[in-house]
């Protein structure tokens, strides 16, 4: 097992390496550079001074030299600086990263809180009206694009009903650390997390429903019933135990999907996380930040798939890991 994880982590390195080159080249190709961008409102600046500044920042070196310089710093944990915000990227990321993680965790928890009961009900009472409603919900949530749904949710609950704030992650008036502060954060979190969760339940509900329906007709369940075991015990002890565990294996894929959706969710709900930072950095040509964000997302996605595979192999002994 340890050997397997070690090998998988090792296999991630070339992938991250190729990704880093790809992203680095892409951002190098972006029109405009951060230094010219920063002085764009300053017509008095001498072009020679600008050129000198660029030279000093190493922006005129050949790309591979710039790449090596950047990647060796990155490996040492130095993410570089944002030219636009004039602070280190690590600092810039700090709060936003934790915001995104909090939003992601809240979404994940809500997803399972919604999906697991619905999946069980749909599977257990197959073809009942409740099942039909749940299957209908699943079709709809599969079909609806996240950004349209998020806008409608914001419009209805934020603007029309005024139940929740329409932007931000916390009320700027409250002081950090107080009870009020945490309640305000929660208040800002509810709508984006629920919105994202409502659309990310598809996979889990569908899996659970199919799995329970399949298990229901297996011989060991029939045997349990034939022995006179009560329905409740049949479900709790025999069916659910078999069907619930593999859900954990979706964790990795769910994380990847939620991270992907965070660009829309954060943009629409004005939630200051890395998705929002990404969009604003692109618009401001702050490419040192863009590179770091893409690399970070790529890394998290790889970790997510790795996590899924590991959990799957623990949960399901039939899937043997190649040694």
């Amino acid at each position: 097992m340890v050997k397997y994880i070690f090998k998988r982590v090792l296999a991630m390195i070339p992938q991250l390496f190729i990704l880093s080159i790809l992203v680095f080249l892409l951002t190098k190709a972006m029109p405009g550079d951060p230094i010219s961008q920063a002085f764009i409102g300053n017509p008095n600046l001498d072009p020679a001074v600008l050129e000198e500044l660029k030279e000093k920042a190493g922006l005129n070196d050949p790309w591979h030299i710039q790449y090596v310089r950047w990647i060796s710093r990155l490996i040492q944990g130095d993410l570089g600086n944002s030219y636009v915000h004039k602070i280190s990227i690590a600092k810039l990321l700090g709060d936003r990263f934790s915001n995104t993680i909090i939003l992601g965790l809240a979404t994940l928890v809500l997803t399972y809180l919604i999906a697991i009961p619905l999946g069980i009900i749909a599977g257990r009472y197959q073809d009942s009206w409740a099942d039909k409603m749940i299957v209908g919900y699943n079709y709809v949530s599969y079909a609806v694009p996240l950004f349209v749904f998020a806008l409608l949710m914001l419009f209805i609950f934020g603007f029309r009903l005024g139940l929740v704030p329409t932007s931000g992650s916390v009320d700027p008036q409250v002081t950090k650390g107080t009870m009020e502060y945490y309640l305000s954060r929660l208040h800002h979190l509810i709508l984006p997390a629920t919105t994202a969760a409502l659309l990310s339940t598809v996979g889990t509900i569908q899996y659970l429903r199919n799995e329970i329906i399949d298990t229901k007709y297996k011989d060991f369940v029939k045997t349990a019933r034939a022995k006179g075991t009560s329905e409740k015990v049949v479900y709790n002890r025999h069916i659910l135990r078999n069907s619930l565990l593999p859900i954990a294996a979706f964790l990795g894929t769910d994380i990847v999907n939620i991270l992907g959706g965070s660009i829309f969710i954060e943009q629409i709900f004005g939630y200051p996380g890395i998705g929002q930072l990404f969009v604003s950095s692109i618009l401001q040509r702050d490419y040192s930040v863009v590179v770091v964000l893409v690399m970070l997302s790529g890394f998290l996605a790889l970790l997510g798939t790795l996590l899924s595979d590991i959990i799957l192999s623990i949960v399901d002994p039939r899937i043997r890991l190649e040694d």
Partner: peptide, 15 residues
Amino acid sequence: LVLPTLMIVIVFVSI
């Protein structure tokens, strides 16, 4: 498949 596709598409579009 493991690339952060949406981000990379956005980077592409903007360059």
